[in-house]
């Protein structure tokens, strides 16, 4: 079947690369779920910061960012920096800008990002009650996104892994 050692090595490379690609796809699903969960945790913390201590957003966001860490924490930290004096950004611009800045580090889908951006709609513009309602609403939509991410993961995680390995093998057979 294989003529030379070089061919063996080449075939192995193709299979490994394809498996890694599948693994990456599978990890993407896991990371998306994890990051959505982190965002959900961020919302809960924000709810607490607003309802119990009415902490101003720049401080609340930086505290939440430190607590969560990772790329999602990075979004909160970046938004907090944007809201500090001198940047002239509204809370909504700061939040959406921070999500965009961290796009490459996160695994959110376009729909996920829309849910997240919805938090910005009345951010910092209403009284406490209005803010909590807004957080509740985003939280509700996020539940759907989380559910979908969980389903997606259980359905497709293994699929992507098999697809990677099998695809690599198929490619090797095809090339020979």
């Amino acid at each position: 079947m294989f003529d030379t050692a070089a061919q063996v090595a080449g075939a192995a490379c193709v299979v490994v690369a394809a498996s890694l690609w599948g693994e990456m796809k599978a990890r993407g699903l896991i990371y998306r779920l994890r990051q959505l969960q982190q965002f959900h945790q961020g919302l809960r913390l924000l709810d607490t910061e607003i309802s119990y201590t009415a902490t101003p957003l720049p401080y609340a966001f930086s505290r939440i960012g430190d607590r969560i860490g990772g790329p999602v924490g990075g979004i909160f930290l970046q938004a907090s920096r944007y809201m500090q004096e001198g940047s002239d950004k509204s809370a909504r611009e700061a939040w959406v800008g921070a999500i965009d800045d961290n796009q490459n580090a996160t695994y959110f889908t376009r729909e996920d990002r829309k849910v997240m951006e919805a938090l910005g709609v009345s951010l910092g513009l209403t009284d406490r009650e209005g803010q909590l309602q807004q957080i509740q609403m985003v939280s509700g939509e996020l539940e759907y996104a989380l559910e979908e991410a969980r389903r997606e993961r259980s359905k497709h995680e293994r699929m992507w892994r098999y697809l990677g390995v099998l695809g690599g093998v198929a490619l090797v057979i095809f090339l020979i």
């Binding site: 607003i50 009415a54 902490t55 101003p56 957003l57 720049p58 609340a60 809201m83 004096e85 002239d88 509204s90 809370a91 700061a94 951010l123 910092g124 513009l125 209403t126 009284d127 406490r128 209005g130 803010q131």
Partner: peptide, 20 residues
């Protein structure tokens, strides 16, 4: 008006309920 409110309240009007 909206942007001025955000700048005055550090983007956090809810922290000024007594003032509101």
């Amino acid at each position: 008006i909206t942007l001025t409110l955000q700048l005055v309240s550090k983007c956090s009007l809810y922290a000024f309920e007594e003032e509101l």
